[in-house]
Simulated assay, not measured.
Amino acid sequence: MSAIDTEGSSIYLYISDPARMKETNMNIVSQLTADGHSCIIITTNIPSSILKKLYEKRGIPQNQIYFIDAITKYSLGTAPINQPNTTFTSNPGNLTELGIAISEALKKRQGDHTALLFDSISTLLIYLSSPNISKFIHFVSNKIRLLDLRAVYLSAEKGLDPLLLTQISSIVDEVVENQKE
C-alpha cells in the first residue's frame, strides 16, 4: 500500500479490490493512528460496531477513533445506545445530516492531528446520484484543505462511474489504485 503523507493537507482516493476493502480500511487507520492522528471514520458500508471490533483486533487505539455511522440507524431503525465516540445519522443518502455531523466532529478536533476516512464512496451510489456525490466530496475536501487536515476516500474498484471517478480524481491530491497485497 502506498504510504499516506502525514504532514500537511493531503487528500487521497483509494480504489480497492472489493474483497479487500476492510483490510485497506484497517491498514490506513493503523498507519494514521500510529503516526499520532485522530481518525474520524465515516461509514456508509460497514457498521461502526463491526469496524470497532476489527480495529481492536488489529490493536488500533480506540481513543484515537471517532465514528460517523450512516448505516446502522438506517439498518436497525434506531441508533444503538451506549456507543461512545459515535454519531449516528439517519441514512447514507442524507448528505445534509452527514455534512453537519462531519463539520461538528472536525470542530471538536480542531488543533488535533486529525484525518478523515470515508468508507465508502462507491456505496453512496446506492442512495444518491453521481452529481450529488461529487458536490458532497468537493464540499468535504474543501473543508479538509481549509483546516489543513488529511482525508482518505475509499471506493471499490470499478465501483464509480467514469464521470464521477474523473471528478473525484480532480479533487484529490492522489489516486491509489488496485491495492492487492
Score class of each variant (00 low, 15 high):
residue 46 I to F: 07
residue 8 G to Y: 09
residue 102 I to F: 03
residue 110 Q to P: 00
residue 15 I to Y: 00
residue 17 D to N: 15
residue 137 I to M: 09
residue 163 L to D: 10
residue 73 K to C: 01
residue 70 A to H: 04
residue 44 T to E: 10
residue 110 Q to C: 04
residue 21 M to Q: 13
residue 107 K to D: 03
residue 36 G to F: 06
residue 9 S to N: 13
residue 176 V to E: 08
residue 92 P to C: 06
residue 79 A to S: 15
residue 96 T to V: 12
residue 24 T to G: 09
residue 32 L to Q: 02
residue 38 S to Y: 14
residue 154 L to K: 05
residue 150 R to L: 15
residue 51 L to V: 11
residue 159 G to I: 08
residue 90 S to I: 14
residue 22 K to M: 11
residue 108 K to H: 11
residue 97 E to P: 03
residue 93 G to F: 10
residue 133 I to V: 12
residue 105 A to I: 01
residue 33 T to H: 04
residue 107 K to E: 06
residue 119 D to P: 01
residue 43 T to Y: 10
residue 157 E to A: 14
residue 1 M to S: 08
residue 93 G to T: 09
residue 131 P to H: 11
residue 139 F to I: 14
residue 44 T to G: 09
residue 173 D to A: 03
residue 97 E to T: 07
residue 64 Q to F: 09
residue 21 M to K: 11
residue 155 S to N: 07
residue 31 Q to H: 11
residue 143 K to G: 02
residue 105 A to T: 00
residue 79 A to W: 08
residue 69 D to C: 06
residue 117 L to P: 00
residue 66 Y to F: 15
residue 72 T to A: 06
residue 89 T to C: 14
residue 95 L to M: 13
residue 94 N to H: 12
residue 136 F to H: 14
residue 132 N to L: 14
residue 115 A to E: 01
residue 123 T to P: 02
residue 31 Q to T: 04
residue 52 K to H: 12
residue 125 L to Y: 04
residue 153 Y to N: 02
residue 140 V to E: 05
residue 73 K to L: 08
residue 60 I to R: 07
residue 54 L to E: 11
residue 13 L to C: 04
residue 95 L to R: 11
residue 41 I to A: 07
residue 34 A to D: 13
residue 159 G to Y: 11
residue 42 I to T: 07
residue 21 M to H: 07
residue 61 P to Q: 14
residue 1 M to N: 02
residue 7 E to G: 00
residue 6 T to S: 03
residue 174 E to G: 02
residue 5 D to H: 13
residue 55 Y to P: 00
residue 40 I to Q: 01
residue 77 G to Q: 06
residue 164 L to H: 06
residue 65 I to N: 03
residue 80 P to R: 05
residue 136 F to S: 04
residue 89 T to P: 00
residue 57 K to L: 11
residue 78 T to C: 08
residue 13 L to R: 09
residue 83 Q to A: 12
residue 87 T to K: 12
residue 41 I to M: 15
residue 65 I to Q: 03
residue 88 F to K: 09
residue 106 L to A: 04
residue 101 A to C: 02
residue 153 Y to R: 03
residue 175 V to L: 10
residue 14 Y to E: 04
residue 123 T to Q: 13
residue 95 L to D: 06
residue 42 I to C: 10
residue 78 T to F: 15
residue 74 Y to K: 12
residue 82 N to C: 02
residue 56 E to D: 11
residue 35 D to G: 00
residue 74 Y to D: 11
residue 30 S to W: 05
residue 171 I to R: 09
residue 149 L to Q: 13
residue 142 N to G: 05
residue 157 E to T: 13
residue 29 V to P: 02
residue 34 A to L: 08
residue 94 N to K: 08
residue 12 Y to W: 05
residue 25 N to D: 13
residue 145 R to A: 09
residue 111 G to R: 08
residue 98 L to E: 06
residue 101 A to T: 03
residue 148 D to V: 04
residue 162 P to C: 09
residue 102 I to T: 01
residue 102 I to Y: 03
residue 6 T to C: 05
residue 29 V to N: 03
residue 53 K to G: 04
